[in-house]
Simulated assay, not measured.
Amino acid sequence: FHNTLDIAQAVRELQAEGWKTEPEDLAEVSPYLTEKIMRFGEYSTHELDLAPEAYEPHLDVDFTKLDPQDPAAAS
């Protein structure tokens, strides 16, 4: 989930700089990394009682282009 938050923040920063974000671009980015991951490795637990900041799920990207059910996506 943290990787997804980092990717979303990077996209927002690029958009703020004027970069146009296409859904195809985001389809190539995966938040699930499999290299150099310690799946059951060492994790800090001393901050578990800290509440995270509110999550803003909205990205200004038109994902309808990727919807195979949408007839407008084929055009």
Rank of each mutant, 00 (worst) to 15 (best):
E47V: 13
G18V: 01
T45R: 11
D67S: 03
R12T: 01
A8G: 05
E13R: 13
M38V: 07
K20T: 14
H58E: 06
P31M: 05
T34G: 10
A74T: 09
L26V: 12
T45E: 10
V11Q: 01
P57H: 12
Y43L: 15
S44R: 09
D6A: 14
H58V: 14
F63L: 05
E56K: 15
L66H: 02
P52A: 06
A51L: 03
H2A: 12
G41A: 10
K65M: 06
H46D: 08
P23I: 08
P68E: 02
A73Y: 03
I7V: 10
D25A: 15
K20V: 04
V11M: 09
E53Y: 08
L59D: 03
E24D: 09
W19M: 12
D70V: 11
S75G: 13
S44F: 12
R39C: 07
Q69S: 05
T64L: 12
E35V: 15
D70S: 10
P31K: 02
K65H: 13
P68F: 01
L5M: 12
P71W: 03
E42Y: 12
Y32C: 09
P31N: 09
L33C: 04
E35F: 15
P57A: 06
E22L: 15
A51D: 06
N3L: 11
A10N: 03
E53D: 05
S75E: 11
L66I: 09
K36M: 10
E53M: 11
D67I: 00
E17Q: 05
R39T: 14
E17V: 02
E56R: 11
E42S: 13
H46E: 14
E28C: 01
L48Y: 00
P57L: 07
L66G: 02
E53F: 02
P31A: 02
S30Q: 08
D60S: 11
T4W: 00
E13H: 04
E24L: 13
A73I: 10
D6M: 05
Y43C: 07
D49P: 00
V29G: 10
S30P: 01
L48S: 12
P68W: 10
S30M: 03
P57Y: 01
P23D: 00
Y55H: 10
V61D: 00
A10T: 06
P23Y: 08
G18R: 08
